[in-house]
Design a protein around this nucleic acid. Structure first.
Length: 924
RNA sequence: GCCCAGGUGGUGGAACUGGUAGACACGCAGGACUUAAAAUCCUGUUCCCCUUAAAGGAGUGCGGGUUCGAUUCCCGCCCUGGGCACCA
């Protein structure tokens, strides 16, 4: 008779103990080295935590516990990214204040997180919708508004330094990001300007500035829609038409930081894939900007090209349909066609436009003048040229660009070869290889030389210049929504003015309706009392989701600090995040914005580090396993999956919780919804078999698996280890609860090693372990240490299983073996190890004990059973001393009967001996 | 369409820098224990051929290549997932 492993009692007991004893409280002052582990904080959705969320959290929890046991002072906080669209949509539907639903959801999330045994210090929790938090989000925005980017010093500086420069020396006295848009002026000009005029100029330089951007406007709903609320040109809800509309918006001048965002990637410990995605997002390309005159007018337009060498191959020009010049240059005959085409494009998203295989476009009737040949080339408009990239206009070279080529073929435009690639077999259009032909002054040059020559030539002619272009755009910072941070801005005479920092936070006011106003303004615009102040009219847009998440990692360092966004000393101690774990879905947006904000604050001297996240690890997405039933059209009869071929059926998602494998519990299905109460079934072999598909885990697909259910059935330690056991942390996989029994069995076998009696007393042996037992222990210690370091948590779990199986087989209950095993397992299974730590006779928390390190002396081997290959195929195995030299090995191997058999009548060509690995005999 | 990642038994996966493919689990099959079931334990389990076994052949999405040796490196393709700027 012995005591069984009772996980629910153990987990409750220690969860309470940790809370009462402040086991995970973290201090900002410590002699220990610091280590900051961070998870991407969740959006607290109404569906609660599903089993996909904790994957990354478990990994970071294991890592943080490991680091703590290794002697570090570890910060591992958690909070909530609480502003956002779903809460607002729910408010519109249900009339419940987003603050109420958000608070409820956070409570649910926290309960779920605590049950999983995470070592968060909840005193450090941050919520982006908390006024004490967004006070500082607003403050940072105001600092961005109050600064410009000085390209000479490569730093953000207060806007007064720019004003001073203008006052003293006019526009040439300063080189600020954004200045390309501003016409030159002298110091006298500046001083003669009115305040409004001066502010207008300064707006071009501010790091947070007002401009215009196109948004998804839905007339019928009277609101701006998010991209994923638009499906195929119509609103997802209601199916109303959506079109692109220009609106005044706040922007952040992220492009000012483009080069630093690019260069500083080199020093980060991120995956190459992640760095590559950031590089591609920034999209730096070197080329030239060239001005083309429009024939028979005094108008001209600018194109950006990475291939100025191909200018003699230009046979037409393409403007983006939204380009300002389109209306001005279109001829009377082409007017109708062009307008028709423009309205067609208006209803299409950039993505649709890029994916379109069909060639479309319209001729404007206007011609550009080729700057070198003087020939007239036709100007077209087409959706494949986007207004947001480069100048929204291209010079088209059909001989050397695939998209230009299909366009030319479709519209029957001539194609002129300009590059002879015969010297470079296999080179494609996009390779910058070949010798120039039909290209005037460039004839005979290699492409790289021709690029330089072409830039020189356009510069000499005064029609262009070498230029670096970025795909990165300034970030749109306005949302016409309610549930976000209000802008601390008032307008006087259409000119924005910052609120004083004493007026922060500008709290989000109560509204009676969360519905859009219909005019394109957000719900705040309806609050006329709030909007109109003695100092001016308030901005009624709110900030985007990424505002709060761009700096939250700093707030965790000193969440209660109320005179600064982060306490100076705390920031100097914690510096930046040592390990950041989160999904690839944030690969560019969130990570790029956070990096930009950090650099801005670094420039201003408010933080000590130029990068926020030193090491980044991406966790894969856990997908749902959806189950389907098939309803016979127009009936309430459901056909089992194997028989649907005989019927006309509609597939419907069914709740995975009443399907076992693929077999559905038909009684539970009938009870699920009133409409199914009288459902009938066409069964196969007496069972209803469901269809299945792997999809995103979501409430609407009824495939959400709640961790609470798993914890109730198997315990949190088991769920933690099972999620890690599923596979490598960075790979996505469908959730399948089948298989969890293996981990559950392991935990029970580990528990049974301690031989508890009916009084709960462990029965351990204090004898000295055997060499075999020490080898099992130290092999496991070595592997677990190495695998945690490289985030190989799945193989750690396997190692624990192997060790437990081996110790069970040896009936080993020795304290000297089991005690270090408990410490080793502690980061993975924090509850049961805390209990077992007492069983081996310790009194403190296992989570503050030392992590075991291995001793190589227990692992030495002196011989190895070598696989013997004959011509690359393993034919036998021979045990040979590891320190044997090649001649001795060859003698042993060639004397072996099986080897002789295989090499009989053949000549030995090569004897490959890789010590410790393999032996290969090559003979023919 | 563009960028990034992945594809290994019935299933999840292992194989760390080119060196025994399938560790560890799930599932399945057979057996032990039991009045029975559950639980537990033991044995087997890539496929094919032959089968009592041994031995052999094939095999890491597909087609080529480099190498004594390729899941790993190179070239071309197919499929799946993530992102593409207002979901978070």
């Amino acid at each position: 008779m012995n005591m069984e492993y009772n996980f629910s009692a153990i987990e409750q007991k220690w969860q309470q103990f940790w809370q009462e004893n402040g086991t995970y409280k973290v201090s900002n002052g410590s002699d220990k080295p610091k280590f900051y582990v961070l998870d991407m904080f969740p959006y607290p959705s109404g569906a609660g935590l599903h089993v996909g969320h904790p994957l990354g959290y478990i990994a970071s929890d294991i890592y943080s516990r490991y680091k703590r046991m290794k002697g570090f002072n570890v910060l591992h906080p958690m909070g909530f990214d609480a502003f956002g669209l779903p809460a607002e949509q729910y408010a519109i539907q249900q009339g419940l204040h987003p603050d109420v639903t958000t608070k409820q959801n956070i409570k649910t999330f926290k309960g779920q997180l605590n049950r999983l045994g995470f070592d968060y210090d909840w005193d450090r929790e941050v919520k982006t919708c908390d006024p004490d938090y967004y006070k500082w989000t607003q403050w940072i925005f105001l600092q961005l508004f109050a600064c410009w980017y000085n390209k000479s010093t490569q730093k953000a500086e207060p806007i007064d330094t720019l004003e001073a420069a203008f006052r003293a020396g006019g526009s040439n006295a300063a080189d600020g990001a954004g200045g390309e848009e501003v016409a030159d002026f002298s110091a006298e000009d500046w001083n003669a300007m009115s305040e409004a005029e001066q502010q207008k100029v300064l707006m071009n330089f501010r790091l947070a500035y007002l401009s215009h951007a196109s948004v998804n406007w839905c007339e019928a709903l009277g609101t701006v829609l998010a991209n994923d609320e638009v499906k195929e040109g119509v609103s997802e809800r209601g199916g109303h038409p959506v079109e692109r509309r220009l609106m005044r918006q706040w922007f952040l001048r992220t492009t000012a930081y483009a080069d630093r965002l690019l260069d500083d990637l080199d020093d980060l410990d991120w995956s190459d894939a992640m760095k590559e995605m950031q590089r591609n997002w920034i999209g730096r390309s070197e080329g030239a900007s060239v001005w083309f005159d429009i024939a028979d007018t005094d108008k001209k337009f600018e194109v950006f090209t990475t291939r100025p060498d191909t200018i003699y191959g230009v046979t037409f020009m393409v403007l983006a349909p939204e380009h300002d010049l389109v209306a001005e240059v279109t001829s009377a005959e082409q007017k109708q066609e062009v307008e028709g085409y423009v309205s067609y494009v208006k209803a299409r998203t950039d993505r649709e436009r890029q994916m379109e295989k069909k060639v479309t476009g319209a001729f404007t009737g206007a011609y550009a003048v080729h700057p070198f040949s003087g020939e007239k080339v036709p100007i077209y408009i087409s959706e494949y040229v986007l207004i947001g990239y480069g100048t929204g206009a291209i010079m088209a070279v059909p001989s050397d660009d695939d998209r230009d080529e299909v366009f030319a073929q479709h519209f029957d435009i001539p194609i002129v070869d300009i590059i002879d690639k015969s010297k470079y077999p296999g080179a494609t259009k996009s390779d910058k290889l070949g010798i120039m032909i039909n290209s005037g002054f460039m004839d005979g040059m290699e492409v790289p030389d021709a690029i330089k020559a072409a830039i020189n030539a356009v510069e000499e002619k005064g029609i262009g210049t070498g230029k670096v272009n970025y795909r990165l755009r300034d970030a749109g910072y306005s949302r016409q929504r309610y549930w976000g941070e209000p802008f601390p801005i008032v307008y006087r005479d259409e000119m924005p003015y910052a609120l004083g920092s004493g007026d922060l936070p500008l709290t989000l006011p109560e509204v009676s309706s969360y519905k859009p106003t219909g005019s394109g303004d957000g719900p705040l615009a309806a609050l006329t009392d709030w909007v109109n102040t003695p100092d001016g009219k308030r901005e009624t847009d709110t900030m985007p989701g990424y505002a709060g998440s761009s700096w939250y990692f700093l707030r965790y360092m000193s969440p209660q600090c109320n005179d600064r966004f982060v306490d100076e000393k705390a920031e100097q101690y914690w510096q930046n995040v040592d390990l950041y774990i989160g999904g690839t879905e944030h690969a560019v947006g969130h990570l790029l914005y956070s990096r930009t904000w950090q650099k801005f604050m670094f420039d201003r001297g408010w933080v000590s580090q130029k990068e926020p996240f030193k090491r980044l690890v991406n966790q894969g997405m856990i997908q749902g396993m959806s189950r389907f039933v098939y309803r016979k059209k127009g009936t309430n009869t459901f056909v089992s999956h194997g028989l649907i071929g005989e019927h006309e059926v509609t597939p419907l998602h069914v709740d995975v919780n009443f399907v076992d494998g693929l077999v559905m519990d038909t009684e539970r299905f009938k009870a699920w919804r009133a409409e199914y109460n009288d459902a009938e079934f066409i069964l196969e072999d007496g069972q209803y078999i469901c269809g299945s598909a792997v999809e995103k885990m979501s409430k609407s697909k009824f495939n959400v698996v709640n961790p609470d259910d798993i914890v109730n059935q198997y315990g949190a330690d088991c769920l933690r280890m099972f999620e890690m056991f599923l596979g490598p942390i960075d790979q996505g996989k469908p959730w399948n609860t089948q298989g969890i029994s293996g981990v559950s069995k392991f935990l029970r076998r580990f528990w049974n090693l301690f031989r508890f009696d009916e009084n709960g007393q462990a029965n351990l042996d204090d004898a000295t372990p055997t060499a075999d037992e020490m080898k099992i222990l130290h092999k496991t210690i070595k592997k677990v240490n190495e695998d945690i370091d490289r985030m190989g948590f799945n193989t750690c779990v396997s190692a624990f299983m192997e060790a437990t199986n081996a110790l069970t087989e040896k009936k080993c209950n020795k304290r000297a073996i089991l005690k270090p095993m408990v410490a080793l397992l502690a980061p993975f299974a924090p509850f049961v190890t805390e209990e077992l730590w007492r069983a081996v006779g310790e009194s403190g928390s296992v989570h503050h004990s030392d992590f075991p390190t291995h001793d190589e002396q227990y692992l030495v081997e002196n011989s190895k059973e070598y696989p013997i290959q004959i011509n690359g195929k393993v034919r036998t195995k021979i045990s040979i001393a590891l320190d044997a030299d090649k001649a001795a090995v060859e003698a042993v191997v060639m004397g072996n009967d099986i080897v002789k058999q295989w090499t009989d009548g053949k000549t030995l060509r090569k004897f490959v001996y890789v010590p410790g690995k393999i032996i290969n005999v090559v003979a023919n």
